[in-house]
Design a protein around this nucleic acid. Sequence first.
DNA 1: CTTTTGATCGTCT
DNA 2: GACGATCAAAAGC
Length: 195
Amino acid sequence: MPGWAEALVGPVPEVARRLLGARLHHGDVTVRITEVEAYDGPNDPASHAYRGSTARTEVMFGPPGHLYVYFSYGMHWCANVVTGEDGRGSAVLLRAGEVVAGIELARTRRGAKVPDVRLARGPANLAQSLGLDRSSNGLSLEDRLDLPAGVAASVLSGPRVGVSQAADVPWRFWLAGEPTVSAYRRSPRAPAGSR
DNA sequence: CTTTTGATCGTCT
DNA sequence: GACGATCAAAAGC
């Protein structure tokens, strides 16, 4: 593993927290990450990697510091940062962020009427603002990801969104008070639970 | 404001 | 053949 990716290896929830506040650049757009969701490879029933490596998930099982981009619901792209040691299969879904550069281009991609705080709110919206799609799957994040100096101060956590398995594992993390964080929605497929 | 519903297709069973 | 790590517009309050 290259040295720059060392911060992406460690306990899964800890790595997820380290990504909050990070800046991700792609082309002329930069997003400051405000909300993430962690998935822990074959151990995690909610993860795409739960059933092992497939054609879709093979980059999750590669070295950390690369993008795992998947096609969702027949119309959206969502982006993850591959984390953990090579072969582990863990990744962190980028759920929301603040567009801090290239806002004009992001608005062109998302729609002229979309308010700034909504440009990258939601994983598919974040990916669209950055212009990520199939062609970005497996992309190295070296020189594209700037991690913050320390762990963000006010991090909150709760159940993951949209998953029907292990929905109550509190591995969604977000920065307190950020207007770009998407409102929590439990999956309609998840069993009734504690929240 | 919240809830409901349609869009749309790759992936795995 | 069913389902899904989603979204936005429409409809309900």
